Computed example of a mutant assay.
Amino acid sequence: MLLDFFYHLREHRLPVSVQEYLTLLSTLKSKVMPPSLNDFYYLARLVLIKDETLFDRYDRAFGAFYQQIEAAVPVDKEIPLDWLIKEFQKKLTPEEKAAIEKHGWDKLMELFKKTLEEQDERHAGGSKWIGTGGTSAFGHGGYHPEGIRVNGPSAGNRTAVKVWEKREYRDYDDSQELGTRNFKMALRRLRRFAREGAALELDLNDTIRQTARNAGLLDLQLVPERHNAVKVLMLLDVGGSMDDHIKQVEELFSAARSEFQHLEVYYFHNCPYEFLWQQNHRRHSERIETWDVIRKYNDDWRLIIVGDATMSPYEILTPGGSAEHHNRETGAAWLQRLLDNWPRSVWLNPEPEGYWPYRQSIGIIRDLVHNHMYGVTVSGLEQAMRHLSK
């Protein structure tokens, strides 16, 4: 954003040098001004404009630039400091990232509580306090190999082991048609036909047989329609890193809804724990205990879990390790209960298989599901359905 501001001033024939622009960035980082639009106006003019005769031209250029981004700045409110420093926040080299200390779960929680007690103002950058940017283990917009994301968007590193905010998710769309045909063909490998319901379908062979026995008088024989009687329980991971796979999962979900007459769907986030839910907009008010789901569906059902298995290992192996709540039992314990109740089960992973060896959590989940993890591709689905059909 500030780079755009620099070029904008140049376009208005203001002689702003690169050195002056770098000085402005350095001054902003040193926190010499409150994060307000008015203070930024005067600071930028002080640093960038050396000729008083150009003040009017600067005013017009600043006003035009503000109008271009007005929608992104709340009216009559302070500019968020992380908005100002977004373009020049510290870029860490791989060596610097490797040098940042991992605290471990217990120490991280203890340090977070201590920091909450001591901190009394907002911070940006740095390596200790809760804030934006920087290398602190707490806040958002920065980098830490094991951090707690607090009240803000991720910087894209996906290294948070816990998230402190109320997160809202959207249900997957089961009406997608484009691109689902190949998924449907693969899912059809999981079939167990049975005739159920009212007799509405003509049984041609039996009709011929009965008509012949009836001295040629037509005797129609009807049977119930033949349906795929297989029962599928599907658990869908939603939110976080799964946002990258929404289209792919919606196509899979739509194909499953079309192919399986008996399909029950529940949602979870990252790893199944003590509760699931069926509607994401009510996931805080209408939670369903996982034990109730286990009791409701017998082992005649096939279990399909869909998720990228990309999370902190703490979320699988540590009590309290969930990114969103305090879980008394580990995710691994709950996943094992699901697998024990439904031996015919698979985990479908939409993450490209080339990334699997580089995700520690994927390796842990693959071990727990006895290597029955398959990609959300046509070939992956065919392999998964063959396993479920056994």
Rank of each mutant, 00 (worst) to 15 (best):
Y7Q: 08
R10W: 10
L14T: 06
P15V: 05
V16H: 00
L25T: 09
S30L: 05
V32I: 15
Y42V: 02
Y42T: 03
A44Y: 07
V47S: 00
E52H: 10
D56S: 10
R57L: 10
A71T: 12
P74I: 10
P80G: 03
P80A: 06
W83G: 09
I85N: 06
K86N: 05
Q89L: 13
Q89S: 14
K90R: 11
K97C: 08
I100L: 09
K102N: 02
W105A: 00
G125I: 01
S127G: 00
S127E: 03
G133F: 06
G133Y: 04
H144F: 05
N151Q: 08
S154C: 15
A155N: 09
N157F: 08
N157S: 08
K162A: 08
V163I: 15
E165V: 03
L178S: 12
R181T: 14
N182Y: 07
K184Q: 14
R192Y: 11
A194T: 00
R195D: 04
R195W: 01
E196T: 15
A199Y: 00
Q210D: 12
L218N: 06
P224F: 00
E225T: 13
D237R: 09
D243E: 13
Q261E: 13
H262G: 03
A309Q: 14
A309D: 12
A309E: 13
I316V: 11
T318M: 14
H326S: 11
E329H: 14
G331R: 09
L339W: 08
G354F: 12
W356Q: 10
Q360T: 08
H370E: 14
Y374I: 09
L381Y: 01
A384V: 13
